[in-house]
Structure formats: C-alpha cells, structure tokens
C-alpha cells in the first residue's frame, strides 16, 4: 500500500489558530479603541495607529536582521496586539517619542531577544509601558480632560505638555466610573468596554480566566484591608473605585489574560493572580499607579513557567502518593 502522501492524525484541527487568537484579542480591544477615540479624538487615534504600525515595523525589521524567519507566509499578528495594548495604556497627551520608546523596548528587548512571537517570557506590552513609566515618569502625566481636552489638537503628540496632577477619583459617581467619563489612560478607563472585550474573549475561548479572576478577587478583598491599615476605616467602596479607575481591570483582562506569558494551569494561574494582586496592593502606596499594576505582572511572567512546572509536578506527586496509600 502506498503511503507516502499519508498525513498523520489528527485530520481535524481546532479553528483557534494563533492568528485567530490574536485576532480575537484585536477585536476585543475594539470597544476600548472606540472609547479612546471618542473621548480623546484624533491624537488618540494617531497614537494607536502609530504604536501598532511601529511595532509591526520594528518586529519585521528585527526578524529580517536576525534572519530568523523569511516571513511572507505568516503575518505576525501579535505585533499588532502588543502595539495596540501599549497605545491603550498611554495617557492621551503622550508624545510620539515616548510611545516609540515603549514600542522599541517592548519589541527589541522583551520580544525579539527572546526569540520572537510566542517565545517571550514577559509580556512585551507590559514591559514597554513599564519601561517608559520608569524612564519618563513626567512624560506620562498628560491627562487633559474636560475643558482643556480638545479632540482635534495634535500638539501634545509632539510637545510634552505640562505634567498634570493625577486626578482623584473619589468623587466620581458609579455611572462615570462604568462609562469611563473621567480623565485617564486612552483605553483603560472604560469599564464597560473592557467588560465587553472580556466577554467576547471568553465566548471565543481565547482567554484563560484563572489569573484575571483571582487577581480581581484578591484586590477587591484585600483593598479594604490595606485601607484599614492606611486610614483606619473599613469600606468596600474604595476597592470598587480602585478596581474601576486604576486600570486594574484592563490589566487583568488583557495583560493577565494573555495566553503566552501567564501560567496555563488552574492552580498556578490562580496563584499567579493572587500574588499579583497582593504585590499590587503592597507596592501601591510607594510607586506610581501604573508601576504598581504592571511590575507584579512582570514578576509573575518570569515565574509563570516555574509555576506551571511545579503545579504539574505537585499534582502528579499527589496522585502518586494516593496510589501508594491504596496499595
């Protein structure tokens, strides 16, 4: 029997190919993009397009230079997703130079050095955003809003605006918190939009919810405790406001929901989420809000492989020991 052309099983394949996963992420971010452009106008649109385009360009250049892949047959959609994520985590009045720095760092240092799409240990978008937050803390304070916010002004893309004090969120009503009608980052403020994205991803099955859910639960439960220590008053209101206004929800869904860099197993995923939540709350009083959100995620990214490995080994050992007991 001739078998040279025989393909090995399986003969069917899930529809969830890698481009599909990235496309679902892109689609899930669409509401946030709409939010950003609606509230911040042209400069948000330019920032988003610029980040995506430059990320793709730099990724392709790196691949070309290192000769890792000839390219052509496979368009790396992960670059688009990561560029978009970086853009959405920027304040609306960020200059293009800062955005470019974030993209450069994310693409070259955290992605291509590790071997390109999928091989990265840490989340490039997260790392890039954290990098500029540490290098240019003053460059990421442009939250012009309300009366000072012009949807057609482009000057902030080129010239660094006056740093503004980070607005306080305590007085915001629930409707504002949910709809994101308050100054904040381009894409992270609108709770409803992020929720729509999260539901979309869940329906499509391209998100692992262990980490995001445990992270959010940890923060909402422990936030009153930290408030108790700081201000001697116990209330869950603060945790709600913090969750909705700080961008924690965005980070949970789109950074911790990432398949590549977060632990894949249930136990390790939950553990990572809890650790992230605790680290965020612990570091919150001492560093800028974005750092306290992103740095723990990076830390967990480094650990995710180890966490996975251990959770697996532990579970196997448990079964093994039970067998011994039975016999």
């Amino acid at each position: 029997m001739i078998r040279d052309s025989r393909q090995l099983a399986p003969f069917i394949h899930t529809e969830k190919s890698a481009p599909y996963i990235y496309l679902t992420f892109l689609a899930a971010l669409v509401p946030c993009v709409v939010y950003g452009i609606f509230y911040y106008g042209i400069r948000a649109a330019i920032l988003i397009l610029f980040c995506m385009a430059s990320f793709v360009l730099i990724d392709n250049l790196c691949v070309r230079v290192t000769g890792r892949r000839s390219g052509g047959d496979y368009f790396d959609l992960s670059s688009l997703v990561e560029g978009l994520l970086i853009a959405l985590m920027l304040p609306p009045d960020t200059t293009l130079v800062i955005a470019l720095t974030a993209v450069l760092f994310a693409s070259i240092v955290t992605k291509q050095i590790f071997g390109g799409a999928g091989s990265n240990i840490i989340n490039p978008a997260c790392a890039g955003r954290l990098f500029i937050e540490l290098v240019w803390p003053s460059g990421l304070q442009g939250f012009s809003y309300g009366e000072t916010n012009s949807k057609f002004s482009l000057i902030s893309l080129v010239v660094q605006q006056q740093p503004e004090v980070s607005p306080s969120y305590e007085h915001l009503s629930l409707a504002e918190l949910l709809s994101g009608n308050y100054p904040g980052l381009i894409g992270t403020t609108c709770f409803i939009c992020i929720l729509v994205g999260a539901i979309f991803l869940t329906l499509k099955g391209t998100i692992r919810l262990y980490s995001p859910i445990s992270y959010l639960v940890t923060i909402s439960v422990l936030y009153p405790v930290t408030m108790l220590i700081e201000t001697r008053s116990f209330s869950f209101d603060g945790s709600l406001i913090y969750l909705l206004s700080s961008g924690a929800f965005f980070v949970a869904v789109f950074i911790m929901g990432d398949l590549t860099t977060m632990p894949s197993r249930f136990a390790s995923g939950v553990f990572a989420g809890v650790v992230c939540g605790i680290l965020t709350l612990v570091t919150k009083p001492f560093v800028s809000p974005m750092v306290s959100l992103l740095a723990p995620v990076l830390a967990v990214n480094f650990l995710s492989f180890v966490l996975d490995f251990f959770s697996k080994t532990l579970s196997r050992r448990k079964i093994h020991s039970r067998e011994v007991d039975v016999s």
Partner: peptide, 25 residues
C-alpha cells in the same frame, strides 16, 4: 462581522455611557 458588531456595540456603549454620565460630570 464580529469585529464590526463589537465596534458598533463599543460605540453605542461609549456614547451612551457618555451621555448617561455627562450629567454627573
């Protein structure tokens, strides 16, 4: 098609949310 639906949904939510919360603001 799904992306377009999300786009419309997002626009509706954002604009609706804007008008609902604008009073407050």
């Amino acid at each position: 098609a799904e992306a377009v639906i999300l786009l419309i949904l997002g626009a509706v939510l954002v604009i609706g949310g804007y008008f609902i919360s604008q009073d407050n603001a």
